[in-house]
Design a protein around this nucleic acid. Structure first.
Lengths: 202, 202
DNA sequence: GCGTTACGAGTCTGACCCGTATCGTATTGC
DNA sequence: GCAATACGATACGGGTCAGACTCGTAACGC
């Protein structure tokens, strides 16, 4: 909670304490509205307040503005990372690729595409985005390195390019619905196998 | 020009004809404003009119609203498709992959990410997007089929998945700047070679 | 020249929103 | 009980914008 008054280490301030229910309601309302199709900039504090059953002042008491609120709301969304089992490199990759764009919160899928423009226009939001995905990239990087060490993968591959190779197809499909005819269910497996084997005759 | 009064087949209406200069100026102003960082919904008819040096009425006389205008403006943007030479399958693929997200109009690169949210929220915009990319997909499909026929590519590959494999990495890099460390210049070549050869030890 | 239509520029009404302030009320520590 | 702070609700001034409208002017066919 970057912009919220910290409640943990405070020496206990006088007066009525902030309502935790309001905190929750505001964040939830924000995410709900986004998931219902509102774009980031169409989202208004007034709409959030109304949806949360909260006065506008209650929001402004906690956050400096829409950006700060959004930052906190999106942080709630990222969910847990998939944890590869570590037995088979192929299976681990299928798991990681399948986890791309899949979060615990079903609203995430609707919200993600909205972030694409923001990411390229604000350095802050770009950093936030990188912070979320870089640990996931690291996870995949480790699996690939392990594959090289175990002799399953060639030692001369470019790990970074390979990650883009595995991630890209899944991301454009989940975020952009790039090709409506592609079956999203079996895609992770087919992507991993194709990258592993190559498409060239040999 | 879906929403504009057609000027070609009309039997010549009386009065002063529509100014072609105004047509151009409005479209150009729209694209310029988008390329300068305005998001789709932040874009206002008033701003477009001011930028184009045109009265608001002149815009409303031609288009029903912002959506119709945007549709026409974006159509102007798609530019020319890359034309594979047809000698080497690998070189053709490198050319096609390198052309992803690269249009003749330099403004296109700035505008593209903005479309990601719109694509998933409106069936119309989704259709527009598909109309733009499907001929390009077809081009790549033909190159892959040719590769299979010539015996350069394996006959058992899934062509659709392979296209996603080639397109995805380039697209997430150009649109999302997915991995800032990846060199966009050499990426097409490296992606194509990796997909061709596979990463597995054999 | 005359009717017709388009032009740029501007006005006007009605939305919607931001961020602040102010109600009366509720909840805390002292 | 009392000061302090919170709450939801609402009002406020200031801003932007959509669309419809009005000017005086310009370009066309007849």
């Amino acid at each position: 909670m970057s912009d919220m008054t910290s409640t943990a280490d405070a020496p206990r301030s006088p007066g009525r304490p902030r309502s935790v229910r309001a905190d929750e309601a505001i964040i939830e309302a924000t995410l709900d509205l986004l998931a219902e199709g509102s774009t980031i900039e169409a989202l208004s504090i007034e709409a959030i307040a109304a949806r949360a059953g909260v006065g506008k002042a209650t929001i402004y008491r906690r956050w400096a503005g829409k950006d700060a609120l959004l930052l906190d709301a999106l942080r709630r969304l990222k969910g847990v990372m998939a944890q590869p089992a570590g037995h088979s490199v192929r299976d681990d990759l299928v798991l990681l690729v399948g986890a791309i764009g899949k979060n615990v919160d079903p609203r995430a899928a609707k919200i993600m595409p909205c972030l694409a423009p923001a990411v390229n226009r604000s350095a802050d939001q770009f950093q936030l985005y990188q912070n979320i995905i870089s640990p996931r990239r690291q996870l995949m990087r480790e699996v690939l390195r392990r594959g090289i060490d175990e002799g399953v993968l060639r030692a001369d591959i470019d790990v970074e390019v390979t990650m883009a190779l595995l991630t890209g197809p899944m991301l454009i499909q989940r975020v952009l619905q790039w090709n409506p005819d592609l079956d999203e269910q079996t895609l992770p497996e087919r992507v991993v196998d194709a990258v592993l084997e190559g498409i060239q005759v040999r």
